[in-house]
């Protein structure tokens, strides 16, 4: 049985694909998607070599490209992302990249607040299920499961190289999963292995806000205009510097500064939400593209809890969705 764990983020498209019972292949691509005529041409090539070209409502779209390469195109950054043509283009691109004509089961996530809404789940299921036609042939998706986003990272933790004490904390205690995504900062509470939806939630003080703030700090300190897209691209590539008006600016101190401000707001919303539901947190799992920036603050907020950063925070949800789908 072919299973895909699909995490269509605002910044990255993450795909874990493989046969149930085996380890998945994990693919990570930038999550830019727009009509093809918005894609800047690479000098000397004449072709958008690394874009996946898909058909959306009869129009060619370029998907899985750096958002910074899209000219005159405003990316969707709102709660209805999963209903946009860009999202559909990324789903189709994911199926092309996974390259399996028949997918028996596809598992994906929604922000915690949206995953509670049956209408949103059903709308997304209709987008994903069935036949997807592309220039590379048809791709059939048989069954779709939709879970709250942080469930992916939790399942991925179960499949990581756990020591006995950590496994015992998961079995007996309270686990808090923090997913610092680009659009939303989600948390989920798992008590003795059971997901507690009432104590789980979402804040929009997420990476997009943090990156905007860090880009603003760079402009204040070094001049020029804020360049959040350039900063995002630098982070995706693991760069330590950003070129600003000819100078190399070290990113980490600026990101940490922005994280203290933005992360503080998100974690306060989390603390308020947990106040009535949860007495003690025994283990905190931090994941998502911005996970590393939130880890220290999470440790301060939950003294005594074991705080873990997912080994590969960007791909953790997709891997976990894949494992969830092989049940």
């Amino acid at each position: 049985m072919t299973v895909i764990g699909l995490d269509v983020g605002y910044s990255n498209l993450k795909i874990a694909v493989g046969e149930a019972g085996a380890a998945p292949q994990v693919l990570v691509r930038p999550a830019g998607a727009a009509p093809l005529d918005r894609l800047g041409e690479r000098i000397g090539t004449g072709l958008p070599q690394d874009a996946v070209i898909v058909d959306i409502d009869g129009q060619p779209w370029a998907a899985a490209v750096e958002p910074a390469r899209l000219e005159g195109w405003q990316r969707s950054l709102h709660a209805d992302y999963a209903a946009t043509p860009a999202y559909r283009a990324l789903v189709t691109a994911a199926l092309v990249l996974a390259d399996r004509p028949v997918v028996e089961r596809l598992v994906t996530g929604l922000p915690v607040e949206q995953a509670r809404d049956p209408r949103r789940r059903e709308a997304l299921r209709r987008t994903l299920i069935g036949r997807h036609r592309t220039e590379r042939g048809g791709f059939e998706v048989g069954e779709v499961r939709i879970v709250p986003q942080p469930v992916g990272a939790f399942v991925d933790l179960l499949w990581s190289d756990l020591d006995s004490e950590t496994l015992a904390r998961i079995e007996e205690g309270t686990v808090l999963v923090l997913d610092a995504g680009y659009y939303s900062f989600d948390w989920a509470v798992v008590v003795a292995g059971e997901l507690r939806c009432g104590a789980s939630g979402t804040s929009l003080e997420a990476m997009s806000v943090l990156i905007e703030r860090a880009a603003g700090l760079i402009a204040e300190q070094h001049g020029g205009r804020p360049q959040p897209l350039a900063l995002e691209a630098a982070l995706r590539r693991g760069r330590e510097h950003l070129l600003v008006l000819g100078k190399r600016v070290l990113l980490q101190p600026l990101l940490e500064h922005a994280a203290r401000e933005v992360g503080g707001v998100a974690l306060e919303a989390l603390r308020q939400a947990l106040r009535r539901e949860v007495t003690n947190v025994d283990l905190v799992l931090v994941t998502g593209g911005g996970g590393a920036l939130y880890k220290r603050q999470a440790a301060e907020l939950f003294p005594g809890a074991q705080v873990l950063l997912a080994r590969d925070p960007v791909g953790a949800n997709a891997r976990g969705f894949f494992r969830y789908g092989q049940r």
């Binding site: 789940r121 499961r145 469930v151 399942v155 496994l167 079995e171 292995g193 997901l195 494992r323 049940r327």
Partner: peptide, 14 residues
């Protein structure tokens, strides 16, 4: 132990 945890993780309306 892991299988037990996976079974316990039922998501409503998935």
């Amino acid at each position: 132990r892991r299988e037990r945890l996976m079974r316990a993780l039922t998501v409503e309306g998935e």
